[in-house]
Design a protein around this nucleic acid. Sequence first.
DNA 1: GCCAACGTTGGC
DNA 2: GCCAACGTTGGC
Length: 148
Amino acid sequence: MKSEPDTYGLGDLEKEKTTLWDGIRNYQARNFMRSMKIGDQAFFYHSNCKPPGIVGLMQITATKIIDPTQFDSQSKYYDSKSTEINPRWDCVEVKYKGEFSNKLSLEDLKKLYTDEELKVVKKGNRLSIIPVERKTAEDLLLNLGKLI
DNA sequence: GCCAACGTTGGC
DNA sequence: GCCAACGTTGGC
């Protein structure tokens, strides 16, 4: 799950402990969130920064939550076409699990994994939520070191 | 700041 | 349903 550290970084989640992963306005990304289950783990990826890459670990603590920002006309995520009866956007709640002792930059990830093993390294991938195969995830956890 | 690689919108 | 125009993401 990607986020820009200037907007909401791993440090912000560490302070807050849990947060709603709201503001997702891409159907494919939304659908990936819908497939998540409570207890699932997720990598926190810092995007649009130097260097981009995986920095921490999270756990899904609640699913299928209606994204409140879609109804807030003051929010940049406001969607005038979404209704309370038929909301377009939902999200999950995540909990901070830790920061990796051996963070992996996008450059590192490209050296370690192919496009197919880890879709985030594929050129042109702009999705902010991308599934990771269990096998790759287990290997990533070994390469990322300890949680600090 | 540039631009590739998308996704979305809206006229037809 | 097609597609041109436009907007966004995000690495570089």
